[in-house]
Design a binder for these strands. Structure first.
Lengths: 142, 142
DNA sequence: CAGTTTTCGTTAAAATTCGAACGACAGTAC
DNA sequence: GTACTGTCGTTCGAATTTTAACGAAAACTG
């Protein structure tokens, strides 16, 4: 269980550090940053609410809240979904994209400094595949 | 950055699943469970608040809140610290220990099912060492 | 030993999370 | 078409976390 203990501590510590960095750099929380990243990767910089929530791994209600916050900040907009009248599209704005481009380097630097750069190429490859396996297993069972 | 993405998703998904399991099994949250584990490992089943907060990786105020909750549930007690009049000791009660023994198996089963058992011995070893490295780095820089 | 600075744990207010319940719409069966 | 069932996003209330500020006690300084 040593692996598990280390995993939990490391992920919580890293989470804290990342939160701190993002807040200082752009007043963003980690979930908010994740939302921007996912949107920037999506076709036309937009995504359905439910799909986005699944991707970021937060509840739908938490996403509703965060999208509202990001909308107030002008980084995201809501749009009606053409194919489904119930649907809502979260759309990354120009300002959102610029914000992301401004913040990413610092974020990645933290991730590298405390995680990536401390692992050999071999270790990194192993860990990636391990994390993918557990992600897949958990997504499958839900 | 694939490694990082997988890491974040996997840890959030796992966190959710664990939270769900603990809530169902004993009405505990993950932080609460962590507190019980740390206390059960400590000499005389007790620890100073600040030290405990560092171990579990939560803020002091969050720990104050959680210890109060656990005290209401009868799983933990507060005691005055003999060597330091400011200090407070969190002490695991008999009921707390029994609760932990009751819940642990189910918890470990989840951790194994989604993380440990999906990794080869080699992968597990690599991940442990990687997590230890980042934990150490993050604790050192704080 | 007085004066300053830290550390300890708690508190208060604000922010964020989740789960459950909801109304609106979509999909399917008959 | 009508009824059933499922999905979508939001809202509400409860629980939890964080930050900042606080009073008390320790540790350090001279």
């Amino acid at each position: 269980m040593a692996a598990w203990r280390a995993f939990v501590s490391a992920s919580h510590l890293l989470e804290r550090r990342i939160e701190e960095q993002l807040k200082a750099a752009a007043g963003l929380t980690h979930p908010q940053y994740e939302i921007l990243v996912r949107l920037s990767d999506a076709p036309e910089h937009q995504m359905r609410m439910t799909e986005l929530a699944r991707g970021v791994v937060v509840s739908k209600s938490a996403l509703t809240y965060q999208i509202t916050q990001l909308e107030k900040a002008g980084l995201v907009e809501r749009a009606t979904c053409p194919s489904d009248d119930r649907g809502v599209l979260a759309v990354l704005t120009e300002a959102g994209l610029r914000c992301l481009e401004k913040v990413s380097p610092g974020h990645l630097e933290v991730v590298r400094a405390y995680l990536i750069d401390r692992l050999s190429r071999e270790e990194l490859r192993t860990m990636t595949s391990a994390m993918r396996k557990t992600e897949e297993a958990l997504r499958a069972s839900a």
